[in-house]
Simulated scan of single mutants.
Amino acid sequence: MQDWTVYLSGEIHTDWRGQIEEQSRALGLPVRFTAPVTDHPASDDCGASILGHEDTKFWYDHKGAKLNAIRTRSLLAAADIVVVRFGDKYKQWNAAFDAGYASALGKSLIVLHDPSLTHPLKEVDAAALAVAEKPEQVVQILKYVINGELDRT
């Protein structure tokens, strides 16, 4: 069986990616995980650090966003499944953009968020093939769609 590629997009302030990766490894799932740059300062500063400083914040951010988009677009396009996590601490406009981009590419989209975000994310949820509340639910989804195995509880 070939490996599946799963892109893990979204908030970077909790260990949800590590939980999904660890649990998937423990189950022996044939999955290769990819993600955006999760080092927040590196993600913010990459454009100006590589291409030259900008005095105007708009252009400083613009350079960084474009460099980050090279990675994001490439990895989203290569993914079999895209998981987008929305946290409750910050507005994740980039996560919403990634979800829309994945949907436009016809990718299988799994959205992960707390039930308190159901209303503000209703359009994103409507585009998803699954909406989970916990990382372990994402792992169970992966186990089911990859192996056809369902843990009945």
Rank of each mutant, 00 (worst) to 15 (best):
R32T: 13
G28N: 14
V83G: 11
W59Q: 04
H119G: 07
I70W: 03
R25C: 10
R71P: 02
Q140G: 01
D45I: 00
S9F: 00
F33Q: 11
V138Q: 07
V139L: 12
M1N: 05
W4Q: 04
A130T: 10
E11T: 15
K107R: 10
V31A: 01
A130V: 07
R32M: 08
F86Y: 13
G10R: 15
T153Q: 11
W93M: 15
Y101I: 06
A42C: 07
H113I: 05
A48N: 04
C46L: 12
Y101F: 10
A104K: 07
K66N: 03
P30C: 07
R17V: 11
N68D: 08
A102I: 12
H119A: 08
K89C: 10
E149L: 09
L67A: 06
V139F: 05
R73N: 12
V82G: 03
V84N: 15
S49H: 09
Q19L: 09
D114S: 15
G47N: 05
H62T: 02
K122D: 08
P115N: 06
D44E: 13
L29K: 11
D55S: 12
A104P: 00
Y7V: 04
A79F: 00
T38Y: 09
Q137K: 14
L121I: 04
E22N: 08
A26H: 13
S24T: 14
R32H: 06
R17M: 07
T118E: 11
A35G: 02
K89V: 14
E136L: 11
P135H: 07
S49P: 00
L142I: 01
P30V: 03
I50G: 05
R73V: 10
V31S: 04
V145L: 09
V84H: 12
V111N: 04
N68S: 09
T14D: 15
D3C: 02
L129C: 06
K122C: 05
K122W: 03
L51P: 00
K134L: 09
P120V: 01
H13A: 07
T34G: 01
I50C: 10
Y90H: 14
K107D: 07
V84L: 13
V83K: 10
E11D: 15
A35K: 06
T118I: 07
M1W: 03
A79C: 05
N147P: 02
L109N: 01
G64T: 11
A96H: 00
D15N: 04
G18P: 06
K89L: 13
A128I: 08
V31W: 01
A42N: 07
L142P: 01
R71A: 03
E149T: 10
V84Q: 11
T38V: 05
A127L: 11
W93V: 13
A132C: 15
W93N: 04
T5L: 01
A35Y: 01
Q140C: 00
I50K: 04
T34Q: 08
T34V: 14
A79R: 00
V124Q: 00
L51A: 03
H13Q: 15
A130D: 14
A132E: 12
W16P: 06
R32G: 01
L150R: 11
V139R: 05
E22Y: 06
T34H: 06
T153M: 09
T72R: 14
T72K: 07
S108H: 03
I50M: 12
